[in-house]
Design a protein around this nucleic acid. Structure first.
Lengths: 146, 146
DNA sequence: CAAATTCCGAGTAAAAAAGTAGGATTTTAA
DNA sequence: TTAAAATCCTACTTTTTTACTCGGAATTTG
């Protein structure tokens, strides 16, 4: 049970943009280096995020990307939605008529419960929360190590 | 963001066994037909479930499978754990040292929160719950349609 | 003994994920 | 005005995973 890299890379990259929110645009190259992600691959992810309206691009030299909205208005669900597509625990929920009648509803209820509960976390967590986690971690580890 | 068929088929099949708990063993063929799953494929899934101790086999003619424990003692997490492997939102959590230092912990906290919350539902839902959902659905739809 | 079943290991085709590449366009700044 | 740095766009390739198939051995029932 694994999440694809798309969502993970996407969140990491968006986190970088959140850290720089309000400042200069950040280039793909920079993010790819800091997060150790393939530059070309990340470019594709950003194309999707831009088309979905989550980020804005600034073209040309000194260009890069910025968040379209403040970090607290962008949820992890927004990012996953674009990069991973909707949560489909079972296609039972979309193409309903393929299941055998006998258990159709029993397991469907289960899939619904699961996806609802996943959606709930993803919807309730914003980029700002991640930034806050990061900041409080910085506080705690101040002075430790290099 | 999609679950593979393994977990889904597995739960459906285990649900069938739960319905027959206490009775005769149920054959793969029967389940495959009722749930519209490839017989050979299901056979493989059952091999894993058996090795993991969730089900027991009865060989030979009139043989089949039965649950090793009562339905209320088998969680969806048990089944998914066997068929889908552990939830790995990010390998950050296992091979910790590959991330760049700067955000290592911030996103890791997020992945932990997400997997914890998914695990919570999966752990707290048992086969018995699914059977109960099924039964109460049977009650409600009694008399409707064929 | 024949039929029904589990058991086991190997193989395969299709789909999805992950990454790569090349070149056009835009903007900055020397 | 030109070179460099970036986005933009489309397509291709490789790798991995998923889903499924197959053949035959072993076990049990009637």
């Amino acid at each position: 049970m694994k999440l694809s890299t798309r969502g993970r890379y996407g969140v990491k990259a968006m986190f970088e943009l959140a850290l720089h929110y309000g400042g200069d645009p950040v280039s793909i190259k920079e993010i790819a280096e800091r997060q150790n992600i393939s530059e070309y691959y990340l470019e594709q992810l950003f194309a999707s995020l831009r088309k979905a309206g989550l980020i804005k691009s600034v073209r040309g030299s000194k260009g890069g990307y910025i968040l379209s909205r403040p970090p607290k208005e962008i949820t992890i669900a927004d990012i996953f939605g674009v990069l991973e597509g909707p949560i489909e625990i079972s296609d039972c929920i979309t193409q309903e008529m393929n299941c055998s009648r006998i258990n159709y509803c029993a397991t469907r209820i289960l899939w619904l419960k699961i996806s609802n509960s996943i959606n709930e976390i993803l919807n309730s967590t914003t980029l700002q929360d991640v930034v806050n986690d990061y900041n409080s971690l910085q506080e705690k580890t101040k002075g430790e190590g290099e």
